[in-house]
């Protein structure tokens, strides 16, 4: 029957159309524009020049921004992975009632469905000079002067990232752990393993795919961020993407595009490396 044969193509056609027109074509154009020339007072001019790449790669600012992005990425990756692992572990193996576990899991996920910008701004009255933490510490007499580094600093940037992105670790790790057969753990204990051994040799390897998926999310989110780093560092720090943001604001689209291509290459390389370790699609349908 021919309908049966062509049915999948019809069903996937709308998705294919959207992806082709609004993902593949735009990304292709970003690559094309990255070879254009930026003329002062005129704007982007079609051309084929490598000048944008040469300018970027020879500029110290670029390297500084990328280095700072990588630094933030690694710090946030480490914190969110540890938090995500232990919170999922608590929910899956320590909470005995399934309904309670699901309710607690939902509590962790609800903020995901609210605005990131608002959640980021909400740190202002907490971390600020006259914020809650400084007020509390002053009242307790632990400090005389408010701590200035709490807000508008690298510390604040990391706090905001962890606040926004830990969820992306919890969900896949929770998902992976929930599939672990609990009798495996009992078998390990019966065979003489300590509880730490069980976590290290049974739970951790079996949660590997969840951690990898979470890592893909956290890496791409931190690398692609520009607004958290701009607001929370008070303009003191930057990221690779905030460099692109600045170029767009001065209408230098060719250089922004070249920078975007570099960023995209790095992000896709990291994601591919992680996807080599796990087959996401098979994990999802398993």
């Amino acid at each position: 029957m021919t309908l049966r044969r062509i049915l999948p193509y019809l069903q996937v056609a709308p998705l294919t159309l959207v992806l082709a027109l609004f993902v593949v074509l735009p990304l292709g154009l970003v690559v094309a524009v990255s070879f254009w020339r930026f003329q002062f007072l005129v704007g982007p001019v079609p051309d084929f020049t490598l000048q944008n790449y040469v300018d970027l790669l020879s500029s110290e600012t670029t390297w500084r921004l990328y280095l700072s992005t990588v630094k933030f990425t690694l710090i946030v990756l480490a914190i969110t992975a540890v938090l995500g692992f232990w919170i999922s572990y608590f929910l899956v193996f320590h909470v005995r009632n399934l309904l309670t576990a699901i309710a607690l899991f939902l509590i962790c996920t609800v903020p995901f469905w609210t605005s990131n910008i608002i959640r980021m701004i909400s740190w202002r009255p907490v971390l600020g000079k006259e914020g809650l933490i400084n007020q509390a510490l002053m009242k307790l007499g632990l400090i005389d002067q408010p701590l200035a580094w709490l807000l508008f600093s690298d510390f604040a940037v990391v706090v905001a990232y962890v606040h926004l992105f830990t969820l992306f670790m919890i969900v896949p790790i929770f998902n992976a752990m929930a599939r672990i057969d609990k009798s495996l753990l009992e078998a390990a204990v019966d065979a003489g393993a300590s509880r730490l051994d069980v976590v290290w040799n049974v739970v951790l390897p079996l949660s590997r795919t969840g951690i990898a998926l979470g890592a893909v999310f956290v890496v791409t989110l931190v690398m692609g961020d520009f607004f958290v780093v701009i607001v929370m560092s008070g303009g003191l720090s930057g990221s690779a993407t905030s460099g692109i943001y600045n170029d767009v604001q001065i209408q230098n689209y060719p250089r922004a595009a070249a920078n975007a291509v570099i960023l995209l290459a790095i992000v896709l390389m990291m994601a591919t490396a992680i996807f080599r370790v796990v087959d996401v699609r098979r994990e999802l349908v398993r």
Partner: peptide
Amino acid sequence: AIFFTAITSLIVPGLVLSIGILVT
């Protein structure tokens, strides 16, 4: 191919895609 394009769409920095769609 379609699946990996969808994944790319998910992980590509939003700002980059924003520039691309503007140009498109």
